[in-house]
Design a protein around this nucleic acid. Structure first.
Lengths: 147, 147
DNA sequence: TTGAAAATATTGAATATTCAACGATTGAAG
DNA sequence: CTTCAATCGTTGAATATTCAATATTTTCAA
């Protein structure tokens, strides 16, 4: 008698795969827009986080922009060369470095933001207002439940 | 008079960011489980796709496992060395290569699948049955609307 | 106060990914 | 038929990321 082979879940039904696929696609679109300014998505994130004008340590920043430390250090090196951001030693804890956005960085950040907003609006149009906010809500809650 | 500064959307409210964050977290968890067998997530995907026993061309496979062509070629090279998969020239179109899973690959694939299913169950527990299926539905629809 | 442990950021070597170019094969127009 | 463009997969060089080790500073217990 033939072994009753239970049909294996196709990969397209795994949450991990759906997230990877959606992320890849949305990221690709954003990348395309930001490439108008020649800036990778990660630099947009960095500039956006620093836009509050406060100093942020490297560790804090790495968490916020979803990059691990060595990668961030090297990306920041480039951004310092481009005078988009600058380092200041934290006076309260000299192990730390505080990152600040420069005036040039602020100007670029504004341009990037409007490109990113463009994309969000484009998604809203094709995907719908309701779906978008519901998806955001569910993603936030998934992230919460994973900590 | 002070310039009326409209508060900038925080990065945590962008869909692109939420997707990246959720993907990173879920992927990290899956990676952790699969590391028990010393296999990266991408190889699990490849083995899973090839598990149907059919031959899949490199291009088809690259799309399915979310890898670009050169990266896939090099990963397949490693998997061929490990005798998990093998190449066959497509007799109908000699530009193409058909990939097949080996017996060893099938054995490994089964182990990996149960690790992946473990994870899905863990998510279901902490995140809830309803939320999970709703999230999957929304992700599928987002992906659809992006094509 | 001292000394060991933890936290922070960076570095260099090893590894992986990407970009552009290539060779081989097929398709299709003239 | 012949030729030219398109498709498919791979390669090598350039680039980026990661891992492990390091230097510095702080924390905290003895």
């Amino acid at each position: 008698m033939a072994k009753p082979t239970k049909a294996n879940t196709p990969i397209t039904e795994h949450l991990a795969y759906l997230l990877a696929q959606a992320n890849r696609e949305i990221n690709r679109q954003l990348e395309l827009r930001l490439s108008k300014e020649g800036v990778p998505v990660e630099q947009w994130r960095i500039l956006k986080v620093l836009s509050d004008g406060n100093g942020h340590s490297m560790g804090e920043l790495a968490d916020a922009v979803l990059l691990n430390h060595p990668t961030l250090t090297k990306m920041i090196d480039r951004m310092v060369s481009d005078t988009l951001v600058y380092r200041v030693q934290d006076p309260n804890d000299r192990r730390k470095v505080l990152m600040f956005i420069s005036d040039r960085g602020k100007v670029l950040s504004k341009k990037l933001n409007s490109l990113a907003v463009d994309q969000e609006e484009h998604i809203l149009e094709s995907y719908g207002d309701k779906s978008t906010s519901e998806l955001k809500r569910l993603l936030e809650s998934l992230i919460d439940s994973s900590n």
